[in-house]
């Protein structure tokens, strides 16, 4: 009987090893361990054994059963793994095929760059102010030290609505409007459309965008103006950007300056964009003129401030290498899709 058991153990092991699928394993289980299986049959014949042999053979038979069960379990796991591997192998796809997309649109390049600039100033504590585009002559000119017949009016060809109403030629009128409404400390930027009666060509548009900035508080200095605008330039054009402040003249600031940044196309080496100079003129700025503070209801003996203004269109054009301003207002969808 012991020999028979040994034989079953070997045969079963052999068959299990040869089995290649889970179905065959099931058959093997039935063949050896089932109700009519060979091991079961042998165990049934245990009655014929002597009382001394019975526990010994019984124990051995159980060992054989456990052995076969263990082997079947191992084989099943093995087969399952193989089957899974096989399934996976058959499920390869071409991952270079295009994905399923929802068409996404885009923000206009002017607003895209404007959003970036707004974020930078927002991070420096500047809120965003707004003002009317059809503006009183008073705010656009007179409150900014540009009375009627001032030569500066010739430099900004103005669209008139009536004697006292103009299409604002600059975002600067928001300076006095803001001061009238807000007590210092003031820290705002004011982006928006401005209008000049320039005939349309590759570099001129009768409508374009400016961004005005205004800071008013006690003890504001020209050093603060430089510090603020230098920080902006580094955040927007890159940490390596250098700035240059040149004296200039605006009726509503004193002292006044223009700020150049090192050319962000060539890094200051000199190229076509910066016309070989290595510098690009970006904005006009200065300390707010005491007359302008007074017009805004602020005492210049107590407070001081600085202001700046930059043209958005030019910055966008240089940043993206756009050579014709008309493209910005024509809105060809193939153009808009590039940003």
């Amino acid at each position: 009987m012991r020999e028979q058991l040994e034989k079953i153990k070997l045969e079963a092991l052999e068959e299990i090893k040869e089995a290649t699928n889970s179905q065959r394993i099931d058959e093997i289980r039935v063949k050896y361990l089932g109700k009519k299986g060979s091991l079961t049959t042998i165990l049934r014949g245990m009655g014929s054994l002597s009382p001394e042999e019975r526990p010994i053979i019984g124990k051995f038979a159980n060992e054989v059963r456990e052995f076969i069960e263990e082997e079947i379990k191992k084989a099943l796991l093995n087969i399952k793994n193989k089957e899974r591997e096989l399934k996976i192998k058959g499920e390869y796809i071409d991952i270079t095929m295009p994905g399923k997309k929802v068409e996404i649109g885009g923000i206009h390049p002017l607003n895209k760059v404007l959003d970036e600039i707004k974020d930078i100033f927002f991070g420096m504590g500047f809120s965003i102010a707004e003002g009317p585009e059809v503006e009183l002559d008073y705010y656009n000119f007179e409150a900014l030290n540009v009375p009627k017949n001032h030569p500066a009016r010739d430099e900004q060809d103005t669209f008139y609505i009536s004697e006292n109403l103009v299409l604002r030629t600059q975002t600067s009128p928001i300076q006095v409007r803001t001061m009238e409404k807000t007590k210092p400390p003031i820290r705002i930027i004011a982006p928006g459309r401005v209008y000049r009666s320039d005939a349309v060509d590759a570099t001129h548009s009768p409508i374009f965008y400016q961004i005005e900035g205004l800071v008013v508080d006690k003890g504001i200095t020209m050093a603060n103006l430089k510090g603020t605008l230098e920080t902006f330039a580094k955040r927007f054009f890159g940490e390596k950007t250098r700035t240059k402040f040149r004296p200039h003249h605006f009726p509503f600031t004193e002292p006044s300056a223009e700020m150049d940044v090192s050319c962000f196309v060539c890094g200051g080496e000199g190229c076509r964009v910066c016309k070989g100079s290595g510098w690009i003129e970006i904005l006009g700025c200065g300390m707010v003129h005491p007359d302008v503070l007074r017009k805004g209801g602020i005492d210049p003996d107590e407070y001081s401030g600085f202001a700046f203004g930059m043209g958005l269109d030019r910055i966008v054009m240089i940043k993206y290498g756009i050579d014709d301003i008309r493209l910005l207002y024509e809105n060809d969808i193939r153009f808009l899709k590039q940003f």
Partner: peptide
């Protein structure tokens, strides 16, 4: 002229 940060009361930016 040295470039200096604005001193004084912190101003909160709000949209």
């Amino acid at each position: 002229i040295k470039a200096e940060k604005i001193k004084g009361e912190a101003v909160e930016a709000v949209l």
